[in-house]
Design a protein around this nucleic acid. Structure first.
Lengths: 338, 338
DNA sequence: AAATACATCCGAAGCGTTTCGGAAATATCA
DNA sequence: TGATATTTCCGAAACGCTTCGGATGTATTT
């Protein structure tokens, strides 16, 4: 069993109070006795009990992240990269990450209530915003500091702090890139409408078309669940129903990779007589059979920003909303003709 | 501020003791009053304070994972996938994951001491075993339950619970696969010797050669740091110094992808006049420019197993060591000739 | 010399929970 | 009817820490 303040007190001859104050740097303790106490603490390998500290209302130096149910999408890198990025960024500021997920019969909201209700974290980061997001409503109702990666849908107000990538601009850039290459029939595979970001991506696509005076056709839009398989299925459907298409943009890289597979099977040569582009720039994109033109989201840097921003929210409690939009970067590779 | 037992006590007219006992299912409370208390608790959105519980010596229902410094390898998927896998698996059993990393000036061991010393977790999972691993020595010295993904080097004893993939067998299988295809000069890119698993991989390579009566040549071995770039560099070196090579196995997929790049640049056609194979089966492997023959480590399933095993260790404190070796699966793709 | 300041220390309360050891009221037995 | 169980409840202590409000003794001031 680990050493407690009481152990140090006994061994040093001072009171628990003095030991506590010596160790936490108060200036009303004699330098000599402080040294003495610190020495003993080191000998005993003292580590302050985290729970006892928290019970006093101290900060937990922990921030929470709950990740969506796994069934949702097994090979989706998003949460794994975010988790790792947040962990590093948090460590850099002396914080830890409490990661959790809903158990079989629970909802994401249940987990939020458990984590923040039990006072285990100083703040939360929430990702993958939904329309009318109940997680955000809950966090606001209990006044728990949080930062959102993403923002509300364009038709809703985002009355919270967020950092988002300007995916409208990103999809517009990649779509325009395809249009520039002469493609006039460009399909798109969108994420499920439940996600707030879905609409921004569609808007970006439409803006690009408009800039080129090309009419928007709803039948050029298909929907996927962010997985490779769903991208494949959606692309197969597009290709069979809209054979005039010569390009497809996938709203994330996995769906784009699935689309590439479908396009290949349909007999096209990607990068020559058909273009495919993605979004995210996951590690696999650069090394794909035909390297994937895509839009880079600097997930690591975003992790850093999220943590930094959340810490200022926790410590300064700003009254005005911090809302940042990051410009994504178009990464041109072979799948759009290089 | 969240409701406490005292609030419920006041509102219900019962004592804190009774409220506590009612809520945690003791049978010495009248069914009627229990119902009454539960109703009020729900109304108030009561969530037990986690710290207060822990202070009573309760289980934390949290398990810790500390991930290695980021500088080590930015595009290494290992920890991110492990983290996500563990989080899901833990959630399934009602556990959370506390993820941390060393800050700039700290070592991994420092983080272990802080996390377990402050009593924040019921157990730890440690990954990427080193030779003479100090983390393991520490955990043993403080009697903290832990499970290792990996095991000690072959020349050391593994006196702890572990789950490992039989990478010796895996590398042997993939090497033999190349030898079967008629390659007689097969190079290998090994991980740094600091890692316990490095030796198993080398042993697997040597065993495969021995089975084919081919002499082992140390000059066919290069070393990398698990990154794509390091694989590229190592392969360039091998190719220039050992031009007779017709195959290279990388000890992880990223190094193999780097090797593929070097091989391509050297003018070979991968899968035809040169073979490359990897290890891990990361998502990018299947979608690489030439799909990568590799050995699959079921990282998700391993996450499940690690958690399940760790929980039995925490709850049952077994005296004998649980040690499991998983047979990896050879995945043959185009980079070795299909 | 008395009054005041300063340096150094400590007792006790409190954070929210669990749990031990009863206590009071009611039911069951002889 | 008195003794004994049973049911239902609760007070108080404890977990390890922080912090408020002194207390004690020494140094400085007038």
């Amino acid at each position: 069993m680990p050493a407690t303040l009481k152990d140090i007190a006994k061994k040093s001859g001072f009171s628990v109070t003095t030991v506590s104050r010596a160790l936490s740097g108060y200036d009303d303790v004699n330098p000599g006795t402080r040294e003495h106490i610190v020495t003993i603490a080191d000998e005993l390998g003292y580590q302050p009990n985290h729970s006892a500290r928290q019970l006093q209302g101290q900060k937990t130096h922990t921030i929470g992240l709950v990740i969506a149910p796994p069934a949702h999408n097994p090979d989706d890198d998003f949460y794994s990269l975010l988790l790792k990025g947040l962990t590093y960024a948090a460590a850099h500021s002396g914080y830890d990450i409490l990661a959790s997920a809903p158990a079989a019969d629970a909802t994401e909201l249940d987990v939020y209530q458990r984590i923040v209700g039990s006072k285990r974290v100083d703040g939360m980061v929430v990702a993958r915003t939904n329309r009318d997001d109940r997680r955000i409503a809950y966090l606001q109702s209990v006044d728990c500091p949080f930062i959102v990666h993403g923002r509300a849908a364009p038709d809703a107000t985002s009355n919270f702090h967020y950092i988002d990538v300007d995916s409208q601009q990103g999809i517009m850039a990649v779509t325009q890139h395809l249009l520039e290459r002469g493609h006039t029939h460009v399909g798109i595979i969108l994420p499920a409408e439940q996600f707030a970001f879905s609409q921004y991506r569609q808007a970006g696509y439409m803006a690009a078309l408009a800039a080129y005076n090309i009419m928007f056709r709803p039948e050029y839009c298909a929907y996927g669940t962010l997985t490779l398989d769903s991208g494949y299925t959606a692309a197969c459907q597009l290709l069979s129903q809209q054979p005039q298409l010569t390009a497809i943009v996938g709203c994330n890289d996995w769906m784009a990779l699935g689309a590439m597979k479908a396009v290949n099977e349909a007999g096209y040569t990607i990068g020559k007589d058909f273009a495919v582009a993605g979004y995210d720039d996951i590690p696999a994109a650069a090394h794909a059979s035909t390297s994937l033109t895509t839009v880079r989201q600097p997930i690591y840097a975003i992790g850093e920003m999220l943590i930094a921003r959340l810490l200022t929210i926790i410590n300064d409690d700003p009254t005005t909303f911090h809302q940042t939009l990051i410009e994504p970067e178009l990464v041109i590779r072979d799948s759009s003709g290089g």
